[in-house]
Write a protein that binds this DNA or RNA. Sequence first.
DNA 1: ATTAGCACTCACCAACATCGAGTGCTAACC
DNA 2: GGTTAGCACTCGATGTTGGTGAGTGCTAAT
Lengths: 348, 348
Amino acid sequence: MELDERKKKILKAVIANYLETGEPVGSRTISKYTDLDLSSATIRNEMADLEELGYIYSPHPSAGRVPTDKGYRFYVDNLMEEKEEIEEVKSTLLERVDRMELMLKQVAKVLAYNTNYATMVTAPNYRKTVKFIQLSQVDLDNLLAVIVVEGNIIKNQMIPVNVPLDNEDVLKFNILLNTFLQGAALEDINLEMIQAMKKQAGEYDVILEHIFQGIVEAIHEANELEIYTSGATNILKYPEIGDISKTSELLEAFENKNELTNLLEKTVNNDGEEGIQVYIGDETPVQNMKDCSLVTATYKMPEGATGTIGIIGPKRMDYKKVVSTLKNLTIELDDIFKKGKGVNTDGD
Amino acid sequence: MELDERKKKILKAVIANYLETGEPVGSRTISKYTDLDLSSATIRNEMADLEELGYIYSPHPSAGRVPTDKGYRFYVDNLMEEKEEIEEVKSTLLERVDRMELMLKQVAKVLAYNTNYATMVTAPNYRKTVKFIQLSQVDLDNLLAVIVVEGNIIKNQMIPVNVPLDNEDVLKFNILLNTFLQGAALEDINLEMIQAMKKQAGEYDVILEHIFQGIVEAIHEANELEIYTSGATNILKYPEIGDISKTSELLEAFENKNELTNLLEKTVNNDGEEGIQVYIGDETPVQNMKDCSLVTATYKMPEGATGTIGIIGPKRMDYKKVVSTLKNLTIELDDIFKKGKGVNTDGD
DNA sequence: ATTAGCACTCACCAACATCGAGTGCTAACC
DNA sequence: GGTTAGCACTCGATGTTGGTGAGTGCTAAT
């Protein structure tokens, strides 16, 4: 059954009011709040219908109505018109950040500050090929390998060696490593390659293997999906989320980066769509977030790499604000990356 | 007024019991709990004395007694004998961690897991002199500077250059930078040095200045005191700490690394003593930790560098366990560093 | 000095009454 | 037919009351 115009208006009013106050909203409030000019009795009848249809429910007979997940869903899909004003705040804060990592941290922070929800941001995910390897002798017992991967993520690895090497040896290794590894991604490295390298290394094959191991480890690290979070404590501000033990669970989950990464990856893969996704209550792919909502957005780098931004808040979060903020933010990010200026994508 | 032996015994029993249960403890409990063989009435008299002296108080007339800050203090200073058994758990977990950063993170984590309190660990603080600088051309527009400082902390810095440089130029810069900066610490870099370098750079003085700036920035970063935290959510487990708003404040403070660093530095400087320090309630140097206790310990590296470990918990924390855990842990850390094996002190 | 005894206090809890916001339903109204 | 005034009803929230029990302080006896 389709909702008629009036029901939509009432549903919207109920939700808007509930988002604001957090209290169940009664018929009289709606009767005054809207421009419908209907008595509370009429509203009551309509609300009874809406309840029957599953959009709202009353926690107990003498309380007002509260949106159900279905209600929120309808609101987000059909009722919510987005804010037009652009949130300027963050752009000023994003000014000078010359490293990917710092910038994403900053994004998470600013977003948490602006929205009062918990936020997380993943670094862009793309095929990370080796751009450049530099091996140098730091002291008698240690080689330092510096690996620059595409996107200028830099990883360092100390490699202990027990055989004295002279400059020339190191130079040889350097050339060898670069010839084989430049342009390669993690998944390109295979046994054959190792064999070929060892062959070329001749008597140094054992050391080379050692060094190679260190480098692979570093590449591995560069491939790990970084995730930055902020505003975890904001969760405490919304008592509806549950008692202390539930909140605590949620916070712990939020501290666990692996879990979060999975979560974000799942949401993005779930529905191949890009852009902004809203997950309400049970719709979220993680158990202990049943009483929350999750809004995700993806941003793009010109090379096609994408990253995800996520916001976790109570079900009664300000969807309008969050969605429009995210929309603007992703546009801004896309922009910054497009210009390719002001941001060096180097890790540290 | 000195406490006589019996009062001490009773105070100790009260505190021990309270630490265990978290409930005010009554005279009858003590009468049974101790080997004093005294009736509850006698205990009552003694407890009244202890209350007058400020070691304990009753939250209300018909409740038992609870230790005051002064009581805890006396307990920690005079009454508490430390556990003899060594906490083996963590050592097993500290096995293979080959980077300072990861290891300290691990320490914080294990400690939080073992104690159920919030923990923080600072990296050792020492004069960080430049060991080695490596400049390389990553692509047409960027130089990569790798700076290794004493203790094998490695920092990377991308330096955009708009003038094409050939290999030889880079090599020259490398030599120049290393001659001037090797062995220097941040505070050694001064205007004179810059002038001298520029002079030697000749026509390249502008680029050099640019590069130099990038390097100084990196050295700066290496000098920043890192701090790692874990178990923040443990704070939620102790409702005595206060209502949600207080807990939330505390958690936020805990998220703010700068504040924490200050805190730890303050505690260490406060009383020049090294070793283990216990701050109870008001004694902590930070306002919003009034309802908590803080235990800090310092560990040493053979070169004299020291770092700090801190544990934040409720006032009724298990001081005995915490102190002995910290004692063992610092010994273990000192040991690991002394061996100098198993740990490469490289950042990333 | 110790302790048995006792009156006293007060947090905690359950039972109960009150209040009021909000409902559903019915009947009257336009 | 849709709308609304009116009313009985529900039930959470709040407040009151009384009983219970843990624990105390004091006194008098040991």
